[in-house]
Each structure stands twice: as C-alpha cells, then as structure tokens.
C-alpha cells in the first residue's frame, strides 16, 4: 500500500497472498486514482509550512537586501517617507503584550482548570467548561470591537488609580505611569489574556481530569487538601502537557492580530510605560499594509511577518512537541 506504483507492480502476485488487493492491480484503476489523490493532498498539507516560509521570505528579499538582518532587528526607526524601516519597537511590543497576557492568563487558567476538575460539583463541570470554551469561539474581531468601544473606556476610569498606586511603587513604578487613555500595551495584554484563557484552560483541564484517579485519591486518603493535591499531584504529573498548553497559548498571543490592532494604540514609538500606546508586529502589518505604496514598504512589512514566523514557529514547535499525544481542539476535547 506504499504507493500506486507498488500496487501496480503487485499485478502478478497471486490474490491469495495479498488479501484485499483484488481490483487494485489494474493500472489507473479507481483505486490507484483514489490513493493518488489522497497522497497528493496529504503531500500538500505536509509541505505547507515550508511553502509559507519560502514564499514570505522571497517577498521580503528587497527589505532583507536593504536593511540586512541585524540592522532590521535592532533599528527603531520606522519612517515610510524616507523609507527607513526597523523592527525593534514592534518586536518589543509583541513580546511585552504577550508577556502581560501570559502573566495574567496562566494563573487564572490554572485556577479555572483545577476548579473544573477538582472543586466544582459534578453538575457544574460541563456548563462551566462549555462556557469557558465559548470564549474561544468568539472571533478576534469581536474582541477588538468590545476592547476598543467598551473595555478601553471602562479601563480608562481605572487608570488614574493605577497611576496613583502602582505608579508610585519603586522600580516598577515607571511602567504604570501615563495618561488615562484606556488603550495601550496593558489593555492589549489584558484582552489577549482573555482570548488565550480558553486554550490554556482546555489543555490543563483535560490533563488534570486524565490524571489517574488512584493518584489523586491516595493523596486525598492521606488527608491532603484540594490545594495540596493540585500542587503536589496534578501539577507534577502533568508538567509536560501543562507547559505545552502554556506555549500553545503564547503562540496564539504572539500572532493575534485584530484584537491587538484595536486596543494597542498603534504608536510606532517605544515607551517605558505600559499605559502608553505601542504596536506589535501583527498590528503594524494590519494597520499599514493597505497604505503601503512603495515596493520596499510592502516588502518591509512582509519582512516583519517573517520575523513573526521565526518567533511563533519556535513556540509552536515546542508546544506541539510538549503536548505530544495530548489531543486538542474542540472535537477531541470531549
């Protein structure tokens, strides 16, 4: 069954030796055609990733030639008029907004997952799980709309308080000083945290539920509390998959475009404060792509996309490897 040629080659072997090959011997039979179509489609899926990287790299060649690799990554200049482009502020913006999202989403996801698997009464588990999963079904454009028109104005009311209290802290104070605009790096991080919460939660919940009952119950029988079981039984037992789930969420946060574009403020300048507007790689591409007039401008934006692929690919490969056989996705998590 390796390939259609092999099947054709088996034409002369007696049917008794190869059960199930009847009708497969004729050249260009329906069978080899079906197999051929299946193989080529699977091949298409198999080369997709390489094709994406190559196509995007080819389109960023003009920018790579002009700015080099390190020069592009380190430069903070983004000036469409004089055609000088550098990725540094956007790389920082992507990493910082995702880092805020992870800091907020990982503990909350852990809490929700333990609540669903250990604390909640049986009747509550299914509805709560489904509701949290529904957060993943909301399209990112709706998160953006809600973030810009509803959450940001509400958050702007909270920002003076953040200024007065967190902004007064030593060392980290500078991070929390700024005008109460509602939009900015911190807002982007919070919206991202809500968006990745269902993904991380789903994986943690699945592996917590799948932890052998005898492990959990031995601990409970020894008098361990729910928290001790979660900390000392569930987490060590599922460490690999939990890390994979966190990387999966990180990959989502790094590449999220629409929601971030709405609320990050779209300023191409770096600023020390998280309350100030910034930009991420996806947001600057989404914002400026249709306005980019010159070849070099478009190429630089695609080059930014290539940088994004480099960052997300590492995270995604780690996630897939760590998750291994853990099934994910809406269908398989039932």
């Amino acid at each position: 069954m390796e390939s259609s040629e092999a099947a054709v080659g088996q034409k002369l072997t007696p049917a008794a030796e190869e059960p199930g090959t009847a009708g497969r011997g004729r050249p260009l039979s329906a069978d080899s055609l079906f197999h051929g179509v299946c193989v080529s489609m699977a091949g298409l899926v198999g080369v997709a990733l390489v094709a994406i990287v190559i196509a995007i790299a080819v389109d960023s060649l003009p920018a790579i030639r002009t700015f080099g690799v390190l020069g592009f990554l380190k430069s903070s200049e983004w000036d469409p008029v004089s055609e000088h482009f550098g990725a540094f502020p956007f790389i920082v913006g992507t990493l910082v907004s995702s880092a805020i999202a992870m800091v907020l989403a990982v503990p909350v996801s852990f809490g929700v997952a333990v609540f669903i698997s250990e604390l909640a009464p049986a009747w509550m588990r299914q509805p709560v799980s489904a509701a949290i999963e529904m957060l993943a079904a909301v399209p990112s454009i709706v998160y953006g709309l809600w973030g810009l028109l509803v959450f940001a104005p509400a958050f702007a009311n909270l920002e003076p308080w953040i200024n007065d209290h967190l902004g007064a802290l030593p060392l980290v104070g500078a991070l929390f000083q700024g005008p109460p605009m509602g939009i900015g790096m911190l807002t982007a991080g919070i919206v991202l945290a809500i968006m990745i919460l269902p993904y991380i939660t789903a994986i943690m919940r699945d592996v917590f539920v799948a932890t052998p009952t005898r492990l959990k119950e031995s601990a409970y029988a020894m008098g361990a509390t729910t928290w001790e079981v979660a900390r000392q039984i569930l987490l060590p037992y599922t460490r690999t998959a939990v890390t994979g789930g966190i990387f999966l969420g990180l990959g989502r946060a790094l590449g999220e475009t629409m929601a971030v574009t709405f609320v990050i403020g779209n300023s191409n300048n770096l600023s020390a404060s998280l309350l100030m507007p910034g930009a991420s790689i996806p947001s600057v591409i989404a914002n400026e792509f249709t306005e980019a007039t010159s070849k070099l401008y478009v190429s630089s934006l695609i080059y930014l996309g290539l940088v994004l692929i480099a960052i997300t690919l590492i995270v995604q490969v780690l996630a897939v490897l760590l998750l291994g056989s853990v099934r994910r996705g809406a269908v398989s998590s039932r």
């Binding site: 990959g251 790094l254 475009t257 996806p282 692929i309 997300t312 490969v317």
Partner: peptide, 9 residues
C-alpha cells in the same frame, strides 16, 4: 503546527 499558525501569516 498549521492548526495554531497565526492567521496573519
């Protein structure tokens, strides 16, 4: 990997 590739890519 494609399953979780950012849609912008």
């Amino acid at each position: 990997i494609m399953l979780s590739a950012p849609s912008i890519e």
